[in-house]
């Protein structure tokens, strides 16, 4: 018997709720649009855009220290703006800033800039010694997102969840 799983964004939203991740800051991305729309529509969440990803790292750091859990949503190129603030705020202060990154730049990318910046993402995460996992399968989505959030909180360490085009379909150019 095969079980029909809900779409990835529904799974993610439910895992956020289960872990009391209420504050969602984002710099928008086309692939994340269904998740962002669902978060805005649900009064459980406080959800808003920031002008830049760095700002969102600051907001989530302050919120967590004051008792409110959050998640930063962005795309690959946005993540590449972050190494300095990640190193000097969540990494240095041991604050579990949690990030969800829609992966551009691979598996059919049409923009050479996105392809180039994508190659910097995992080396940056590795060199900051940040926990990161790539979600590529729907049947693994709940466990990876849930466990990564729980580990980040329990170990007081920032973490990144990368949403592969294998999961989301990615952003593709029309043929």
């Amino acid at each position: 018997m095969t079980q029909t799983l809900p779409p990835w964004h529904e799974i993610v939203l439910n895992v956020f709720k289960a872990n009391e991740v209420k504050l969602i800051t984002y710099v928008p991305d086309n692939v994340l649009k269904p998740l962002i729309n669902a978060l805005h529509a649900d009064p459980y969440f406080t959800c808003f855009a920031t002008a830049r990803e760095e700002e969102a790292v600051g907001i989530l750091s302050g919120a967590w220290m004051a008792g409110l859990r959050g998640m930063l949503l962005m795309q690959t190129s946005g993540f590449a703006t972050l190494p300095n603030v990640l190193a000097s705020l969540p990494c240095a202060f041991q604050i579990p800033v949690m990030m969800m990154i829609s992966e551009r730049g691979t598996l059919g990318e049409f923009n050479v800039g996105q392809a180039a910046v994508c190659r910097t993402m995992r080396p940056i995460l590795d060199s900051l010694a940040m926990e990161h996992h790539t979600v590529s399968r729907l049947d693994e989505c709940e466990m990876i997102v849930d466990r990564t959030i729980r580990q980040a909180i329990m170990t007081q360490a920032p973490a990144a969840l990368i949403l592969s085009p294998l999961l989301t379909g990615g952003k593709v150019v029309a043929r």
Binding site: L23, E55, G58, L60, G62, A63, L68
Partner: peptide
């Protein structure tokens, strides 16, 4: 990031 951090604190409390 002083203003964003303060904003996060302000939203939480």
């Amino acid at each position: 990031l002083a203003i964003p951090i303060a904003m996060g604190v302000a939203l939480a409390q």
